[in-house]
């Protein structure tokens, strides 16, 4: 059985609806940040969730943890339906499901010492018998993530970005969770520090038997560490499958263009690239039919009117596109 099973999960935001709108009869504006998402995460794997800013990937991660209350759908974690847990049960569940944040500056309370920040989960869940035990556990986890023992009584502003990210990781891991949402944990870091944190996250996963939902906009990172990949566009998953499949044989035109856009050191000089026209459409007025049709070079009439179904295109590999059967790739189109 999967460790995490998400079914039909949606998170919609209601636009502001003031008196004036009501008088003028304006309709509710609804932003479907996350729309009808199904996915599973197996125990011990890393599911990479990739997409551009505003596609809803962070909202999905937070909706799974109920940090943002989902609008509809269910989240099953180890057999328990997270979406219906009462506050006490949810609190107990939080010990098992954790999150690591993107911004190493915003994610730590500037008025608390490292010992207080990292020790908070122990205090909240009563995991340490006394102050001394708490301190001991904090020191142990801090040492494991690479902080020096003398540093735990310092304040966050006394650390660099990479060290702060280590503190955030220590806080997430001290309660020995099983599942962690990594919300772009390395995006704000410099290249050399990024590599340190990735290496650390992989080591910790192996040691502690963790399962990650790893959110990123960087295909190189996802391609390096994920076992499976889900590609998100405007609140929906457009393609999902084993990482080798997605990298070698991307089937959705959006995945294809995303991959061709990444500058790589292994390529020198210009290379063939799929040019997407235009920007992301406004989430307030999403396109009809396939959400990608406004930018898709392959779009036909059906794409404009009908939303494509999710189809299986290979073992464990699914995609949602009207033109899958033609086995087109955009690079063929571009060279034709």
């Amino acid at each position: 059985m999967s460790l995490l099973k998400v079914e039909g999960l949606s998170k919609h935001y209601q636009g502001k609806h003031g008196l004036f709108d009501r008088l003028t009869g304006a309709r509710h504006t609804v932003v479907r940040a996350v729309n009808e998402i199904d996915l599973t995460v197996e125990k011990g794997e890393i599911l990479g969730l990739i997409g551009e800013s505003g596609c809803g990937k962070s909202t999905l991660g937070r909706a799974i943890l109920r940090l943002h209350e989902p609008t509809s759908g269910t989240v099953n974690f180890d057999g328990a339906n997270v979406t219906t847990l009462d506050p006490a049960a949810l609190k107990a569940m939080r010990r098992r499901m954790q999150i690591i944040f993107q911004d190493p500056y915003a994610c730590l309370n500037p008025r608390r010492t490292v010992a207080e920040i990292v020790g908070l989960p122990l205090k909240l869940h009563g995991l340490a018998a006394n102050e001394a035990e708490q301190r001991e556990k904090v020191a142990a986890i801090c040492a494991r993530v690479g902080l020096k023992p003398g540093q735990i009584d310092r304040y966050p502003h006394q650390f660099s970005g990479g060290q702060r990210q280590r503190i955030g990781i220590a806080r997430a891991l001290i309660s020995h969770p099983e599942f962690i949402v990594c919300d772009e944990p390395v995006s704000a870091l410099d290249v050399s520090i990024q590599a340190q944190i990735i290496a650390l996250l992989l080591e910790l996963k192996r040691e502690m038997g963790l399962t990650y939902l790893f959110i990123s906009h960087d295909i190189s990172v996802i391609g390096y560490l994920a076992d499976r990949v889900a590609v998100m566009y405007m609140g929906q998953i457009v393609e999902m499958g084993p990482v080798e499949q997605i990298l070698a044989n991307p089937r959705h035109p959006y995945t294809q263009s995303l991959m061709s856009a990444v500058p790589e050191v292994d390529h020198s000089g210009p290379r063939k690239r799929i040019k997407l026209s235009g920007d992301l459409p406004s989430p307030l007025r999403p396109p009809t039919g396939c959400k990608f049709h406004t930018r898709c070079p392959l779009a036909v009439d059906a794409c404009r009117s009908q939303q494509p179904d999710i189809e299986t295109v290979g073992p464990g590999h699914t995609a949602a596109c009207h033109r899958l059967a033609e086995k087109l790739t955009l690079l063929d189109e571009a060279s034709a």
Partner: peptide
Amino acid sequence: QGLLASIPRPALRGEPIHPIEGQV
């Protein structure tokens, strides 16, 4: 050399990444 080795790449899957230790 360290910077180049630090870039995670799909081609390096499964191999350990070699970050530059320490900080600026």
